[in-house]
Design a protein around this nucleic acid. Structure first.
Lengths: 254, 254
DNA sequence: AAAATAGATTGATAAAAATCAATTAACAGT
DNA sequence: ACTGTTAATTGATTTTTATCAATCTATTTT
């Protein structure tokens, strides 16, 4: 019981930290090293060249096809994951259904509380689109946290910011009615995940429902209601938020 | 959006870290220092005498009457709180109603994600019974995290363990039906908070409802059902779990 | 002891949301 | 183009849960 979580989906991160050329592994689209990576998260600017090299030497890149499971709740977690392309969902497998915790994209990395407890995953991840990601040894990350105070402090700050937005999510799921929760999900997708409006929704209706803590039929009905109220327009997977102010209002009212 | 939280209610902590004698403040029942405190949380065993002294010099003790608010969501948070006697509830003030995140007792301390972000509280705390607590300067804690690697690592571990149990709470609230959630709450109260069976429930029905994410009427009805099924016995505030196995089963089934 | 107050309980009802069943649409493979 | 498969949609219905109103109980105040 009790509440209040931890780490996990960073707002941004090492990115383009692509492939280390290794003859035995398939070669991907880019094989630069972390050292000259152009899209590093600010948190990594705390690191020396040597420290970045440590990360670089303990990573490898994999690709996932849409729908593939990246890791599964309960399994050992020797790596954290930096998304380099595509989207993935993070979800808890609960009683019969899933709770979608969030969606990660390039610039995000995935790190769970298990790394400081028993090195197991406490949630699952699956690719939503064809994706590539760097898998980095967790111990090298923990080593940096131990040895670089600035890095550790920045990490704590990111974890904390995450925690604060999580509170909002908990309140949304437990205290808002379905329209409010769907409004929150649409705002999240538009403003945080796809960063555009209109946007192409690459998640299924079931995923949207899992993100909002309801059945997929209910999620579809709320979307329909919003459509009829001219709050949004939907054509296939293209979602256009016509009235963002009203949507934010629905989010507030619950 | 997204999820997954942070810090906050530690499983155990500095305790009996009672009053520093200060003529200008009311004197409480004990004025030993942290240095010879008999009930320190294991995490503080990482600290040197000097480090403990730092905590000792930056704390003071207050008492709260039952029902009094200890701090309020949104206000600045210059201290973290070590409970030294009594019980307190931690809750988020949501849309019209509260979500009770957990109950703290002596050996617990309260620390929120705000300390690494904007030094504000993201939840409120109120005394459930007459209580005493040490308020300790947050910066001295953060300083220790920065300077003592072992302490920092232990802190991360505690935060992570907390996070893991939080996942269970999120799943309970979002995926279980009312009987499952009340079962979880009763198990939490018996096994974690009061550590006894039967136990004297010092929280109100409204608090129980807030802890389980439902209306107080619904909480009462589920208790009645459990009583009629001979799972529990209730006399006033005394709760006796007659069939813990069945209660755990209800928790599992949802 | 009587009155006042707040909390607990109960029943009746309404609202919210899930489930079930069926249909339609989209799409991959042949 | 046809077939099979999966996802999306819709309507009908049931289940779950909240709300409302009233009563009861315990406790405190006078």
């Amino acid at each position: 019981m009790i509440f209040l979580n931890f780490v996990i989906i960073s707002y941004s991160s090492i990115n383009s930290c692509i492939i280390r050329s290794d003859k035995k592994m398939p070669i991907f689209h880019n094989n630069q090293s972390c050292l000259n990576c152009q899209h590093k998260s600010e948190i990594f600017s705390c690191l020396t060249q040597g420290e970045l090299g440590l990360i670089d030497q303990n990573r490898f890149e994999v690709s996932f096809k849409a729908g593939e499971i990246m890791f599964k709740q309960g399994t050992p977690s020797p790596h954290y994951i930096c998304m380099t392309s595509g989207l993935a969902k993070i979800y808890i497998e609960g009683y019969g259904k899933n709770l979608l915790l969030g969606i990660v994209k390039p610039h995000d990395y995935i790190l769970g509380p298990g790394i400081y407890v028993d090195n197991r995953h406490y949630f699952s991840a699956a690719a939503l689109t064809d994706s590539t990601a760097c898998l980095v040894d967790v111990n090298s990350y923990k080593k940096l946290i131990r040895e670089n105070t600035e890095f550790a402090e920045e990490f704590m700050t990111r974890v904390s910011k995450q925690a604060i937005s999580n509170f909002e999510q908990i309140i949304s799921l437990t205290q808002k009615q379905m329209p409010g929760r769907i409004a929150d999900a649409l705002i999240y997708l538009s403003e945080i995940v796809y960063e555009s409006n209109p946007f192409e929704m690459t998640i299924s209706r079931q995923d949207l429902a899992d993100l909002s803590g309801m059945s997929k039929e209910s999620a579809i009905r709320i979307l329909k209601d919003f459509k009829e109220e001219n709050l949004i327009r939907i054509e296939g997977n293209r979602v256009d938020i016509l009235n963002p102010a009203a949507l934010h209002n629905i989010s507030q009212v619950g």
